[in-house]
Amino acid sequence: MSKVIKNGRIVNDDWQILTVAEGEEAETLDVPAGRVIVPLATWLARREELAARGDVGVWFASHEGPEALADDIGRIAVIAVNFPKFVDGRGYSTAALLRTRYGYTGQLIAFGEVLRDQFKYLTRCGFDTLQPREGRYTDTQLDAAVASLADFTEPYQASVLHPQPLFRRVARAGVKA
């Protein structure tokens, strides 16, 4: 059970993210019962079996893109994206694509090196769940992080959270104002 920020609230999340340990193969990974999130390769190898369960999610490594799941979007319980390093920004594009191109509306988790100073960008790209490493933040810090989601009120560009750019959302003052 890990503490996550989901839709702007701190909650306990019981999704279990399965990783491939040394000596294991993604394709033959032991997938236990319950709410589990499997690596993309595991899903692709056994999609019918796993999709039939209805409680299996998929996670992307940072180099993996959503194209691979285009046909499965409707039958995946949850999608997660790993941030192996916080400077690896590929996951932002993965999220934006899942939301804007592949029509994914379910829970979208950012996990790994997910730092509070990135929360705002992550949510704007479509992540609704932020899962920092276990023990990374104290409860007080998590509270402050949730509050910081409101740091910026009106961003310029269109994103998942604001589908219209500022120049289409509001009437802006010109030089004559």
């Binding site: 932002y92 934006a96 705002k120 750019p165």
Partner: peptide, 14 residues
């Protein structure tokens, strides 16, 4: 400039 400022997807480019 406005488009690029705080662009959420492109803050951690290679």
């Amino acid at each position: 400039r406005q488009w690029a400022t705080f662009h959420p997807e492109f803050a951690y480019l290679p």
